[in-house]
Design a protein around this nucleic acid. Structure first.
Lengths: 246, 246
DNA sequence: TTAATAGTGTCTCTGAGACACTATGTG
DNA sequence: CACATAGTGTCTCAGAGACACTATTAA
């Protein structure tokens, strides 16, 4: 988001030189990133098990405090790079969470971002304290609400702070934007079939979509380019591979 | 946004007691409010002329720093109450602006909110340093970009900081949400005619809308209740007055 | 050849735009 | 009565769903 700053005049420069930023108490400012990917037709989010207080042992979104010289989006990318080894990921601001009691340590405002990435780029990063947890969205349509992350036994994972609400906001945003913004592609590899894209939409929306009209809409959108290649190693007629036109 | 916090255990409580929040440098955190209303079929935003450095004399969105005990939305309501004498206003989080250079004093992150209100509630608050400035949106559809606020002579007002970009984000959000969220009503008095509601949509969208299908859509939405009353003091057949069903 | 999915052609249904027509207030 | 806008009835057109049919690969 670019903006023009007025040129300061001399009087203003004198004021700025004497300005004391520590005059008021400041809350802490963090970014939390909802890294979403698709595995087995289901949305998964990257979660880290907290290895320190507070809420030791619960599962948290990757996040970090915002540096004094970086933009919010840069902070989100830094978090992804540090905690998931990912660069060049699609990232978008989600919502800013600032309830006074959301962090028991002190006042922490969190600017949440969501990131979308193809599974192949992240499936290797799982270890004991870091999971791609399947999400269960317990509401439909435009309702919204917290989202449940599942552990390997299918039981809900304990989520830290208000991170269930952040996940819920991400799921809601994704569902809302999917139909009019080109974001489904971000969860797929470079080239993909229409069926794969449809599966992405179905997983995100939590419902089946009509095959015929989905194909028509996607092809009519003008954002897909046929590669001329076809998928292989499938047990049926191979489908055309498409590429997303940026 | 409600969330469940886990109950801290004794070990966690000990940690919290020793936690020092001043360990890291913190940016300042502000809220800025885009208060929008409709006058003469045009969107207007409340702007204050800055009477202090920096950017003395330029026009700024009403805003303020976030208190340590209040939520972000409470801070937005407080700003509206203090700077516009308004309570019970429709308010929604817009976007968080955090470019490192957006404020020349120091690092200030601003959580922007937009508020929608009927003109009758705010037209009396204008004075020398406080205006409802008409907005000119120099782009269409889903493009976005900064927005121009006009002075009484029709010339653009100098806007402080990145507030032109914040206004642009508000205009874009409003245009995007108008068709699927019940927000047009917020810019009208309690009861209104369908023609008035159509005017609201036309002003926000910056284009005319089809009368017939607009009526059909609104009546079919189920969110309007006929009051049985009609407008009066008009030179033509008076229209039915409707009320918005919350 | 069969199984399985890719992809096409076409009918129907629904909602938006267009437009003509009727209704009802004021001057 | 004329004027101006409110409000209705109906036709057309475009896009979504439904469904039958053909195409193409592997086993």
């Amino acid at each position: 988001m670019k903006h023009d700053l007025r040129q300061p005049d001399p009087e203003e420069l004198a004021f700025l030189a004497s300005y004391d930023a520590s005059e008021f108490p400041h809350p802490s400012l963090a970014v939390d990133v909802v890294l979403l990917t698709l595995r087995e037709e289901r949305l998964h989010a990257l979660l880290d098990e907290r290895d320190a207080q507070p809420q030791l042992g619960s599962w948290a979104l990757p996040g970090g405090f915002v540096g004094m010289e970086e933009s919010l989006e840069e902070a989100a990318h830094r978090v992804l790079s540090r905690k998931a080894g990912l660069d060049e990921v699609f990232v978008e601001q989600l919502f800013t969470f600032g309830a006074p009691d959301r962090d028991p340590r002190t006042r922490v405002i969190s600017v949440a971002y969501y990131a979308l990435v193809d599974l192949r780029r992240v499936e290797a990063i799982e270890d004991e304290g870091r999971r791609l947890a399947p999400l269960e969205v317990p509401w439909e349509g435009e309702l919204g609400g917290p989202v449940v992350a599942l552990g390997p036994d299918g039981d809900p994972l304990p989520l830290a702070f208000d991170h269930a609400a952040i996940l819920g906001t991400a799921a809601l945003r994704l569902r809302g934007k999917l139909d009019y913004a080109p974001i489904g592609f971000e969860l797929l590899p470079d080239t993909f079939t229409l069926r794969q894209l449809q599966s992405v939409h179905e997983a995100v929306l939590g419902r089946t979509v009509n095959k015929d009209s989905f194909r028509r809409r996607m092809l009519a959108s003008g954002r897909l380019e046929a590669t001329g290649q076809r998928e292989h190693d499938v047990i049926h007629r191979p489908a055309e591979l498409y590429r997303y036109l940026r």
